[in-house]
Design a protein around this nucleic acid. Structure first.
Length: 425
RNA sequence: GGAGAGGUGGGUGAGUGGCUGAAACCAACGGUUUGCUAAACCGUCCUACUGUGUAAAACGGUAGCCCGGGUUCGAAUCCCGGCCUCUCCGCCA
């Protein structure tokens, strides 16, 4: 949720920030509502104070057997006025909340200002020994590979669920499962996370808490009868674990890692990019979530990115890190690094991870606070999350980069103990 | 799905419609006492919004006893609707 105080205290800063994010400027609207709200509160609170006093008098008078009808008659009028004011106030506050819930987080000062993905900045890249961008003659894409080796069956999957729902078979299924287990174990053993296995259906409050609602409503699967949404990412259930809680400063940062299947309707995005794994409605992802103190959340973000990178290096997959520009940041993020892996067949980079710091944006929505030892005050915590990683795009790069001239797949060494085989085909 | 019980502050748990932010106890924190620890005693001990105001503070008002309505001059307390938890029964992986 956008911080009303920031708008109140620093409207021009907010205006600029919204412009940097290609966002409509609603500052004046907010200020106007805020002013009306406060005026009304002041007025109504005074009436209520009067009523409280009078009610006390009535009590005393009645106890002494005296007549209180004059006060009661007057207070009846006052109460009516209060009721009226309260309903006006409710309308104003609803309007205000609607606006504040729909305004995205502002970019952090370290984020480059830019309009679109073209303005993202490559921070670094990592390439395996002997890697070349040159596409080998024998190279075929992951869809063809999957078919030829009978490990992926996109055609039959359509029969089951429609397009965009992958079906893994045989060693392909084993490979997928191994990848998930490998990533979870890696983060647990080397990066100090604790493991979560979250529910895959969550309620509206959870979706609003992390910022998917209201904006992404149409991109989510909605089980209407039960009022539940299929999770688009484990970020939602894992972050909401601490919704409406006060955390101890001493236990921070809290670091969770968890797997979930992820469900996205991807409404209106069919097109050339939707082949095979490139855009799917269901995919698997291992997600890292951190609850951090505000003063070091940006350091925690750097660590988060490194944790994801470690996986890719262990798997020997070429990748690059992008810092997203202000205009390309997602709704809730203040700063975000995308990790993209190389696809030889596509001849381009594919987004396999997104690591973001949301600052207090989600915490305000989900009401996640901590008690600061120094001041004894409650403050909103900073939340972060990053994919570590999504298997679908990763699988594309892994299959294609490990293809031999004979059309086999060499399984990365790190996965051998999970798969029980070293070659597919 | 059926029947019943219940939802009060960090916890346990009181609360005849009026002076109840809410007894008491526990926990926590500060202090006194004290060779040390403990005990005892005293004190502090919710949050949000809002106003005056400050370097920080401080002080005042309003609201909050699961949520939302209603009755009333006045609701934790009465009424209606909903949600959730627990127990038993049924169904089922």
């Amino acid at each position: 949720m956008f911080d009303i105080k920031l708008v109140r205290d620093n409207p021009d800063f907010v205006r600029q920030g919204l412009a940097n994010k290609n966002e409509r400027d609603r500052v004046d609207e907010i200020l106007q509502l805020d002013e009306n709200r406060r005026k009304l509160i002041l007025e109504t609170d005074e009436l209520k104070a009067r009523r409280n006093q009078a009610s006390m008098q009535v009590g005393v008078l009645k106890k002494n057997g005296e007549d209180a009808s004059a006060i009661i008659a007057e207070m009846k009028r006052v109460s009516d006025e209060i009721t009226e004011n309260d309903s006006k106030l409710r309308v104003i506050e609803e309007d205000l909340e609607t606006i504040l819930l729909s305004i995205p987080n502002l970019a952090h000062e370290s984020v480059p200002v830019g309009k679109s993905a073209d303005d993202n900045v490559e921070v670094r890249r990592w390439l395996p020994e002997g890697f070349s961008f040159e596409k080998p003659e024998y190279q075929i894409d992951h869809v063809q590979l999957g078919k030829k080796l009978d490990i992926l069956d996109f055609e039959r999957a359509t029969k089951l669920s429609g397009s965009g729902f992958p079906l893994y078979k045989g060693k392909g299924a084993t490979l997928e499962r191994s990848l998930i287990n490998f990533m979870l174990d890696f983060h647990l053993q080397h990066h100090g996370y604790s493991e979560i296995f979250p529910p895959f259906l969550v309620n509206k409050e959870s979706m609003r808490g992390t910022g998917q609602l209201p904006k992404m409503q149409d991109d989510m699967y909605w089980a209407e009868r039960d009022g539940l949404y299929l999770v688009p990412t484990a970020e939602v259930p894992i972050t909401n674990i601490h919704r409406d809680e006060v955390l101890n400063e001493a236990q921070l940062p809290i670091k969770y890692v968890g797997y979930s299947a992820c469900f996205r309707r991807e409404a209106g995005s069919y097109g050339k990019e939707s082949k095979g794994f490139l855009r799917v409605h269901q995919f698997n992802k291992v997600e890292m979530v951190k609850f951090a103190k505000p003063e070091n959340s940006f350091e925690e973000l750097e660590g988060l990115v490194r944790d994801a990178e470690d996986i890719l290096q262990a798997l020997n997959i070429p990748y690059r890190i992008l810092m997203l520009c202000s205009g390309d940041l997602s709704f809730s993020a203040a700063k975000c690094y995308d990790i993209e892996t190389w696809s030889p067949a596509e001849g381009r980079w594919l987004e396999a991870s997104s690591c973001s710091n949301f600052e207090a944006f989600q915490a305000r929505r989900a009401n996640i606070r901590y008690r600061k030892e120094e001041t004894k005050k409650l403050e909103f915590i900073h939340t972060l999350n990053g994919s570590g990683l999504a298997t679908s795009r990763l699988m594309v790069s892994m299959l294609e980069n490990n293809m031999t001239p004979e059309g086999k797949i060499v399984v990365p060494k790190a996965l051998h103990k999970y798969t029980g085989f070293e070659v597919i085909g």
